[in-house]
Computed example of a mutant assay.
Amino acid sequence: MKKLIVMLLALLPSVVMAAGGNVHLDAANNDLSDKASLQRGAKTFVNYCFGCHATQYQRYERVATDLDIPLDLMRDNLIFDKNAKVGDLMTNSISKEYAAVSFGAPAPDLTLVARVRGTDWLYTYLRSFYADPSRPFGVNNVIFPSVGMPHVLEELQGVPTKVYETRLVDGEEVQEYVGIKSNGAGELNADEYDEVVRDLVNFLEYSAEPMKLERQRLGLWVMGFIVIFFVLTVLLKKEYWRDVH
């Protein structure tokens, strides 16, 4: 028992670091029933993320069918590998060895990242990059310190920087972090960028569990059946025991 407690205490720092400390997470407010949002998210993913991060547990055809994307449109605009077929898994060409040399570690597959990290974490993470000349790619991240990836959406957001406010604490001025602000050089304004990130996170949530809405719909039917069955069981029990007493 003591060994188990020691092991758990040893793992605690790494768990805290992976969670990103005590940084507040903004609500993603995804809507998996919004097909337009999912389509935009798929477009953003293959254009900005897919070069390094695969979603190797889903197929192009399944994505096209679920998101109401015509197969010819999928082939022409969302499949960049000329040798890939619409029924193939969504893998990319970057090798683990090359990724490890370039980024310090292989880029993780993102099929299930929304289930592992959570949508609020992803939404906040993609909006928490800031300029940091000390880092290899010139950026860092508030909730993932010493991040090893570049800010791939920088052309959309612009160059982001940390914003601080001066507050008095026990009579002393203290610089307190309050958020991220772009320099305005990106293609999108702040609200538009947040919407792009929300669409991307929406797509990643779909990727992690394509049957989620169907599962929830079936769950309601199952609960309804259980309620009806329970009522019938109670009535049947009363009928059987009516003349016993």
Rank of each mutant, 00 (worst) to 15 (best):
M149H: 00
V159Y: 06
A19Q: 13
N83W: 09
R127A: 02
Y125Q: 01
V23F: 02
V16Y: 14
T166I: 12
M211R: 08
R135P: 02
E173S: 14
V6F: 11
L168K: 12
I228K: 13
E187V: 09
L218E: 10
P210V: 00
W221H: 10
E97D: 09
G148R: 05
Y60M: 05
F129C: 00
K3Q: 12
V159H: 08
L4A: 12
L9N: 04
Y130S: 01
N77T: 10
L67N: 01
K85Q: 14
F137W: 06
D66N: 15
F230G: 15
G104H: 04
G219T: 02
A105C: 10
N22T: 14
H53F: 05
S102E: 15
V227C: 14
Y123P: 00
A208H: 01
A64C: 10
G20K: 01
N140H: 04
Q157P: 04
Q157C: 11
L112N: 12
V23P: 02
D191G: 03
M223S: 14
Y206A: 03
V113W: 03
R75H: 06
R135K: 11
Y60P: 00
T111F: 01
K2W: 11
F80I: 05
Y48A: 07
Y57Q: 09
Y48E: 03
M211E: 10
H151Q: 07
N77G: 07
T166E: 15
E176Y: 11
E176Q: 15
V15D: 07
A27V: 09
G171M: 12
M1R: 13
A131I: 11
P145C: 09
R117Y: 06
G138H: 05
G104T: 02
L236D: 12
F225R: 09
F225M: 12
R62N: 13
I143Q: 00
I5N: 06
N22Q: 11
A185W: 12
V152H: 02
G138F: 03
G171Q: 12
L12S: 09
Y164P: 06
Y130E: 04
P160C: 04
S102C: 13
I79Q: 05
G51A: 05
F229R: 15
T44G: 06
A100I: 05
V147E: 08
Y130W: 03
V16T: 15
A27Y: 07
T161E: 15
S146M: 11
Y240Q: 15
P160A: 01
I228Q: 10
N141T: 01
Y98Q: 15
A42V: 07
R40V: 03
F50Q: 04
F144V: 12
V169D: 13
T233S: 11
A18V: 11
Y240M: 14
L156G: 00
P145L: 08
L213W: 06
P150W: 03
V101W: 14
A28T: 02
F50N: 03
I94E: 06
S146Q: 12
L213Q: 09
A105M: 13
I79W: 01
L4N: 08
L200C: 04
R59K: 15
G148L: 04
S14D: 10
P70W: 10
R117K: 13
Q58N: 11
Q216K: 07
